[in-house]
Nucleic acid binder design. Sequence first.
DNA 1: TTTGCATGTGAAGATCCTGTAACCAGGTGC
DNA 2: GCACCTGGTTACAGGATCTTCACATGCAAA
Lengths: 280, 280
Amino acid sequence: MSPEARDVLVGNAAGAAAQRANNRLRLAVIDRDPGFMQVLSNRLDALGWDLRGLSSAVTVDALVSMRLNALVVDLAVLGPGSWEYLERVCGRLPGLAVIVCTGPSSVAQRVRGLRLGADAWMTKPCHAEELICVIEAAIRRHRRNEMPQIEESTSVGQITIRPDLYQAYADGASLELTAREFEILHLLSQSDRVLRREEIYERVWGYAMAHGDRSVDVFVRKLRQKLRTASPAWSYIHTHFGVGYRFAPELDGGEEPLHEVRDVPGDDGHEAEFVAALVG
Amino acid sequence: MSPEARDVLVGNAAGAAAQRANNRLRLAVIDRDPGFMQVLSNRLDALGWDLRGLSSAVTVDALVSMRLNALVVDLAVLGPGSWEYLERVCGRLPGLAVIVCTGPSSVAQRVRGLRLGADAWMTKPCHAEELICVIEAAIRRHRRNEMPQIEESTSVGQITIRPDLYQAYADGASLELTAREFEILHLLSQSDRVLRREEIYERVWGYAMAHGDRSVDVFVRKLRQKLRTASPAWSYIHTHFGVGYRFAPELDGGEEPLHEVRDVPGDDGHEAEFVAALVG
DNA sequence: TTTGCATGTGAAGATCCTGTAACCAGGTGC
DNA sequence: GCACCTGGTTACAGGATCTTCACATGCAAA
């Protein structure tokens, strides 16, 4: 691996790419112009954003519960009390990117809006692409300063995955995963579906997998080994022959929760033998 | 070293922290319009900002050494290569607020500028007050996040960190940390998670880390040395191979006390019993 | 069942990462 | 000028990790 590629891995791919994949950007727009919303919606769909259209102001608490990355608002829709609303929203949600996108305005109005906490002011009519860029720029800045990314620890089966520590634990004991092992486990654990090797490789390594590369298999083996040691009664990573791997904590021998029954029976049989050996 | 001498040193040497200390926003403007600069200068003087006027592009390194909070640039002054310059600046100084303030432009140009990393785009002629608001909006989060770092002294393990004195102590005795050393220790001590080298560098030095730069490692070594001397029974900075460093005071030899593993032992314990019953 | 792939496994060598120390440059005080 | 300090760079060694390869095993189609 080239030094550059390695750098990309550590610097961006592992964190950013994987997260972006699962964490779509969430945006709400308070506006009543159907044409404007339509254009915006089309464009954002293509980008994979999660757009929420609102035809009038909602409570700050409602905004909080939407867990937005950004809010676009037309002050005209808010009517009187719009300044107070803006101030309340910006004050209450310092991590939210707020963009005012409204009709013609005076310098004084724009200054007021920005001083109240808005991140940008766009004047309608405006090009959707430009608005999106402005939103992106605002989010970018927020993200940058809001270090604590959404790195919540999650528990699946018997193990706990802690992105903040780059490590997984079972019963309080570290699995002693290496950085790459952890990245793969983390990626797998964030998705229910089967992931193709190429997909795993590309997301973790940051570039395309060479034909015939077995690295993913080898890492899955190491992961399984450490998982089995730490949590012997469970199986976590399942092979889908000819496809790839799927993460799902399952209690061996026990009736696994009814997922898609396209499971490979081999694994179950094998593990059943393992348990049987224990019992006998 | 006397407190006075230390203050002087800090004023000279440090990056972000020093800016916080004297609480003065530093702004550079690359523009050739004397009237524009005059108006801006008057207004910013009143606000107590530190304005630096530049009549042409300067090297990125020069910008780095200015320790800026924000940069306003007229693309017309840069001429050909302005896009590349913009990209270079934004890439190298992710913490810098970059505002393009230039004459009439197309949507495509504005989109391009914002995509390259600019935080905002103002079209000349514009009102100085509005421009200042836009700059403030771009800087806002950065500052707001750094301000509340109230200079509270904290004690971890056997050492006490005193941001107000730019020094750490063990058992009343100073560790004799240099400014950089202290900043790194301070940063690390404020976070429980693993910090990547790039992250540490960016937050302490104020700009992006060059590939292959080992400065962080070297400073960590110096820190460890001083920490070991002052508090031999503890280890504070832990290496996460392939990732970065994590701060956590731990007593050597003894099991470290705090591992807030947010497991849900209830279910796990139950399942374990279930299996045990099977096996037994 | 046999055959052709796909996947699991183990180990060795290549590669990368980190700790360490020595070194240089710029600044400061004497 | 000179000595000293601090920040930053570089080279090297040892260890940790990753990749690769050969071979064993498992799966599915014929």
